[in-house]
Simulated assay, not measured.
Amino acid sequence: MLKTKRVRQIKEYVFEHQTVSLDELVEVFHVSKNTIRRDIQELVDLGEIKKVYGGVAVNHTTLESFHDRQTRNQYEKELIGKLAAGYVDDGDIIYIDSGTTTLEMIECLKTKDVTIITNNLDVIITALSYENLNVISTGGVLERKTKSFASFKNMDLIKNYNINKAFMASTGISISNGVTNSSPLESELKKTVVDRSSEVYLLVDHYKFDKYALMTYCGLDEIDYLITDKIPSEEYQEYAKENNIQLVFRESEVKVTS
């Protein structure tokens, strides 16, 4: 693997996990510890990450912007957004979570009559072009890096709505840690949305599997549909079967029931 590609992948891995050990990076990228140290130093010098005892962590003073996340793995995001939009019907009241993958749904919804509840600024702006999309904002304080609104008052607003379908994003998912997010305030909003929704759809590309962030906002077993770009491992397939989760990937879907 070229060094530039490896360094980029190391950065993405650290950002997804928030904190990782050097030994873990050695195992994942199949290189020596000295090589990992040199690669890490490049990212540290750029201010992307910082060294911690035994490993490295995200430098939150340079938290990855919404734009940077949006341009990464763009093909996969568009595919997942298209698959998710296929589950939206005219008249639905849906929640579209703040995320670069969930944003891709809007273009695919432009011919449908739908009410969208969201906390994401880009979702609101993109939906402006389509008069048939009725948009309700949760309001609150704008987090510029993620282009999302968050406030403890959002929780009371969400509790008043009956949401048919919630389309949720995540920084990382795992069977042990569930569905996770880096922002404590946003995580509380996500948790409330999951509780208030009849059906919960989780949109994640395959890079998000077996990764986790600071906060767990729901268990993986609380998800009804898991939409991704490729079929997950047998472990996740078995978990889906045991918990009646429908796996959706690429242009096909697998209904997995117990």
Results as ranks from 00 to 15, higher is better:
Lys5Arg: 11
Ala169Gly: 11
Glu76Arg: 13
Thr126Cys: 11
Leu109Ser: 08
Ala57Leu: 07
Asn73Tyr: 06
Lys191Ser: 14
Ser65Ala: 07
Gly54Asp: 06
Arg72Gln: 09
Ala213Arg: 06
Asp45His: 06
Val194Asn: 04
Val114Pro: 01
Asp89Arg: 13
Lys230Cys: 10
Lys3Phe: 05
Thr71Asn: 12
Ser174Cys: 11
Lys165Asn: 04
Leu63Asn: 07
Lys230Ser: 15
Glu131Val: 01
Lys255Asp: 05
Glu131Arg: 14
Glu222Ile: 02
Asp39Pro: 07
His30Ala: 10
Lys191Trp: 03
Lys33Asn: 03
Ile223Ala: 10
Ile10Leu: 11
Gly172Ala: 09
Glu188Asp: 02
Asp210Thr: 02
Lys5Gln: 12
Glu222Leu: 11
Asp90Ser: 03
Tyr212Trp: 15
Glu16Trp: 05
Cys108Arg: 05
Ser148Cys: 05
Lys208Arg: 14
Ser182Phe: 15
Tyr161Met: 13
Tyr87Lys: 09
Ser98Leu: 07
Asp210His: 13
Asp205Leu: 12
Thr138Lys: 04
Asn59Arg: 03
Asn162Phe: 07
Glu234Met: 12
Thr100Ile: 04
Leu189His: 02
Glu188Ala: 15
Ser198Pro: 00
Ser170Tyr: 08
Ile117Val: 12
Arg38Tyr: 04
Glu24Tyr: 13
Leu83Thr: 08
Thr146Asn: 15
Asp92Ser: 03
Phe209Lys: 09
Lys33Val: 10
Val20Thr: 08
Ser21Asp: 02
Glu188Tyr: 14
Val256His: 07
Val194Phe: 07
Val200Gln: 06
Asp92Cys: 08
Ile80Gln: 04
Glu251Thr: 10
Phe149Tyr: 14
Thr62Asn: 15
Ala166Asn: 01
Ser233Ala: 12
Thr257Val: 07
Gly178Trp: 11
Ile223Cys: 06
Tyr75Phe: 05
Asn132Ala: 08
Leu247Thr: 00
Leu214Val: 03
Val248Trp: 07
Thr192Pro: 02
Lys11Cys: 04
Val114Lys: 05
Asn162Gly: 01
